[in-house]
Design a protein around this nucleic acid. Structure first.
Lengths: 326, 326
DNA sequence: CTGAAAGCGCTTACAG
DNA sequence: CTGAAAGCGCTTACAG
């Protein structure tokens, strides 16, 4: 079926294409009357202007790129889904759509293609890995972008939970219980560095830490190492690590809290229903995505925006903290 | 900075825009020599044609829509991420990008907008919920689409795991153990209906089933109801249900396999590391996404494709099946 | 307030 | 094989 264009509706109404366009965009001078008549007619026919043509005329795409890790690093956590939804919600509200761009390790070729093909007006980065050239590339292209997460560079607009403060807060609840250890994840991830920092601030320089626990076996190894150093409480850097650890505890009949205290720096429905529930930190990732997208849109509109936005957290399952929370 | 166009490179090389275009697309007659010269020059300058302009000229967008549920139904499983990655991989290979479209309950307005604005050439639907008007809408618009999942309508191109066969297979491993019960999820989901069917085929008409266990408490209620009916083995329709159940068992000190056998119709890294590991079904969702996208691309190219593609599954943790697997 | 015309960057018949 | 021209569907100065 032939698609109808503004030319069709113009001739049907006996006006010019220009007037139709003005009715649609609201730009330029046009009488309320003819505008209403045109809009009304379009509504009846359920006409929608072709966005591609608008894009070409305006040199804007009404698309925003959102990065997700490629197949290797995807993981089993729904982080990216949640963030994506937040970004999507805000984008759709403003007439923008989200284009997904996969990033495999340090390979940013997909982003290059999308940017250089002129398919997006801006980008939302999720979870920055230090060392890939993404940020430098986007800056060199002068394309607006916002990061959900943390980057060392202070000139990058970023939105994140305050992991350092949150981890310090939850860790400090256990400092009187005895020695505390930390099972850390991938050391390259910026977010893990922030969590580590919070842990150190509360637990002190001598508290034992094991990095790069990325699967069941390395978690078990880390846990045993910490126990060997006399840890009374074990902090897990995220919910996956914690779940692995809990599954090991259950297998070995190690009791919480009698034999060890467990803490997680990241919540999960799994930890909520564990018995006993594990104290953990909750961040609203969907909200962070929405805020990031909002900042991006405002940047694209030329408004000034704060460089660093830190969203709050919640402390879950205080009841499981010996002595309770403050 | 002024963006460079094919006109720029044409004049720089002393040829016409038409030749440059022919060099890019490979369409039309052009000598190997000038083609190579043009391509070479473009490479050096790292020139990429503006896709938006190509879209308008070709009346193609090189975009594919991928649906995800909006914030209410998102859930804690990474299903959509995984599927999305598969779709993305295949799309990118073929020069297409993925546009994310959220669907909230029965509200398909976002899809309408994207389609009627002419922003996509085709769509990949994930997880169909019977009753929303999505399929009917897309058919009425005549836009090509493929479903990852199952729909009742035989004229829809669909890709899915063979849940019915898989659930029948795993259920039948427990039929001699005694009475089997099933904890079901949302009854409206097509995939759940398929799983139910497989369960029925293996367990028989009299086996007890409880539907709509959607959170910890309803799962516990369902579990107790089945036990009250004398179930020796309990099948969980997915990994979330199963994890909730396991967490209840652990709390109540109910032992596997002494007190009850547990089975899950959907795998998860959580079940893998549970002690003992829970027999479960594994489907490669990323692959399903890739296959769906491939079928869509072929449909758009006018090739005939099979209406229904059923991908295989794996049976995980047979060792936990009493008597082992066949 | 309204229309005719040029332009966004590319493609593709149509003539050479 | 190559170029000049028209066209994809919309927008926006520029004149009325």
């Amino acid at each position: 079926m032939k698609t109808t264009t503004i030319a069709d509706i113009a001739s049907a109404l006996g006006v010019s294409k220009a007037s139709v366009s003005r009715a649609i965009t609201g730009n330029g001078r046009i009488s309320q009357q003819t505008r209403a008549r045109i809009l009304n007619y379009m509504d009846e026919r359920n006409f929608r202007p072709n966005v591609i043509a608008q894009s070409l005329a305006n040199l804007k795409t009404y698309n925003i790129a959102f990065t997700v890790p490629g197949r290797q690093e995807f993981g089993e956590i729904p982080f990216f889904q949640k963030c994506l939804i937040g970004v999507c919600e805000k984008a759709l509200e403003n007439g923008y759509d989200i284009l997904v761009v996969t990033v495999d390790g340090d390979d940013i070729s997909h982003m290059r293609r999308v940017v250089e093909n002129g398919k997006v007006d801006g980008v939302v980065l999720s979870r920055n890995v230090d060392g890939d050239g993404m940020i430098g590339y986007l800056q060199s292209k002068g394309i607006p972008f916002v990061l959900v997460g943390t980057a060392g560079k202070p000139d990058v607009v970023q939105v994140d939970g305050d992991h350092t403060a949150a981890c310090m807060e939850i860790t400090s609840l256990f400092t009187k219980a005895g020695k505390i250890g930390l099972i850390g994840g991938n050391q390259r991830h910026a977010v893990n560095q922030n969590r580590y920092r919070g842990f150190r601030q509360a637990a002190g320089q001598s508290a034992p830490v094991v990095w790069d626990a990325v699967d069941y076996h390395s978690v078990v190894g880390a846990f045993e190492a910490l126990r060997a150093e006399g840890a009374r409480a074990v902090c897990c850097m995220d919910d996956i690590i914690c779940t692995h650890a809990l599954s090991y505890l259950s297998k070995m009949n190690i009791n919480i809290p009698r034999d060890v205290e467990m803490v997680s720096f990241y919540s999960s429905w799994l930890l909520d229903t564990h018995s006993p529930p594990i104290p953990s930190l909750y961040f609203d990732v969907r909200e962070q995505g929405a805020v990031a997208c909002d900042l991006l849109l405002r940047t694209m509109a030329g408004e000034p925006v704060p460089k660093r936005t830190l969203k709050g957290h919640e402390l879950l399952h205080c009841a499981s903290v010996p002595g309770g929370c403050v």
